[in-house]
């Protein structure tokens, strides 16, 4: 197994390098709007150097004056030595900005994931245990509605109902207006209140796919021979479902959930942007729209690495959980 993991890691690194090159090429071939805007601003100052000079100087400063391939290797060398550069938009080192904003994204993602599991797994099992019942239809339809809901629409409806009409929560932001004057507990509750709507949005929009996975797997397991045996033994339905079937559904569920763990660090780009929660998603949205190449490059690479890690993790977990599977 150690050998397998090493091999997979090797392939992953190779894929990551190619993905990074694609990302770098993409970012480089964009109109360098950020540099140009900055050059226009700088050249308009009284007695400043002309625009062309500024563009050349800025390109040189940001390492944009070398060729694509050469630039990529320079970038790569910087990354390997732990130098991720400075964000153009936020004017601080990329890693500093990243460590400031990753926490809240992780907290949001983790709470949402726990809630998703708590909702999706029992409901999925309920639906599968009596296929084509009214309950099954309701749960399946609910899951599909969740999948079909556009994040921005659902978030808007939530805002209208809970922020505008009922006035329970603020429309935007992570902290309220009088946050600095609150006691430590008050601060905690203030933040928690601001996270309620984003987390509801996240859960509702993504709970459906886990629910469907659970239902499909459960249905498959329920057709297995050992379930028939268990029923033939005269076990109560409850025991068949919970002890015999559920344990076997856990195998694919654990791999799916395990594979989604690295995604907790990816942040929720759309949701965070809609609620102006200063997490990694919203921050990188601002950076990307502003054409901030170092930050975008870092974020995209980070996301690619997380995806690879997730795939690897779910494959390994599959072998760990299911003794029939041998990796090699």
């Amino acid at each position: 197994m150690g050998k397998y993991i090493l091999k997979r890691l090797g392939i992953s690194v190779g894929i990551l390098l190619v993905v990074m090159f694609i990302i770098y090429a993409l970012l480089r071939s964009l109109p360098a709007s950020y540099v140009e805007t900055m050059a226009i601003q700088l050249s308009q100052a009284p007695g400043a150097k002309p625009y062309d000079v500024w563009v050349t100087q800025l390109n040189e400063q940001y390492g944009l004056n070398v060729g694509l391939v050469q630039g990529y290797f320079v970038q790569l060398k910087n990354l390997l030595t732990g130098n991720f550069g400075d964000s153009w938009k936020f004017a601080v080192p990329v890693t500093q900005k990243f460590s400031q904003v990753i926490g809240i994204s992780f907290v949001m993602g983790a709470i949402a994931l726990v809630l998703e599991i708590l909702i999706a797994v029992p409901l999925g099992i309920l639906a599968a245990s009596k296929q084509y019942s009214r309950r099954d239809y309701a749960i399946t339809a609910g899951a599909l509605i969740g999948i079909s809901l556009p994040t921005f629409f659902f978030a808007t409806v939530l805002k209208l109902v809970f922020s505008v009409k009922l006035g329970w929560f603020d429309l935007f932001g992570l902290v309220g207006r009088d946050y600095p004057n609150l006691s430590p507990w008050g601060k905690f509750w203030d933040m928690a209140a601001h996270l309620v709507l984003p987390i509801i949005t996240l859960v509702v929009v993504s709970v459906g796919s886990l629910m469907r996975h659970t239902r499909t797997n459960m249905l498959e397991v329920l057709q297995a021979d050992y379930i028939r045996t268990a029923r033939a033994k005269g076990l109560r339905n409850r025991r068949v479902i919970l002890n015999h079937a559920f344990r076997n559904t856990l195998i694919p569920l654990v791999t799916i959930i395990g594979g989604s763990l690295p995604g907790l660090f990816a942040g929720a780009l759309i949701t965070e942007t809609l609620f102006a929660i200063p997490g990694i998603g919203y921050t990188s949205y601002q950076a990307m729209v502003a054409g901030d190449i170092p930050f975008s490059m870092f974020y995209l690479t980070f996301l690619a690495a997380l995806t690879l890690l997730g795939n690897l993790l779910s494959d390994i977990l599959y072998a760990v959980v299911d003794p029939r599977v041998r990796l090699g």
């Binding site: 392939i11 894929i15 990551l16 190619v18 993905v19 694609i22 990302i23 993409l26 970012l27 964009l30 109109p31 709007s33 780009l269 759309i270 990188s284 949205y285 990307m288 729209v289 054409g291 975008s296 974020y299 995209l300 996301l303 690619a304 995806t307 690879l308």
Partner: peptide, 26 residues
């Protein structure tokens, strides 16, 4: 399949946002 792996890894939403912003700029 390696090409598929690479495409799988490219984060699509951020790439679409970047391209959209670029088209705005152009």
């Amino acid at each position: 399949m390696r090409v598929v792996d690479v495409f799988y890894c490219v984060p699509s939403t951020p790439v679409l946002i970047i391209l959209g912003a670029a088209m705005d700029a152009l």
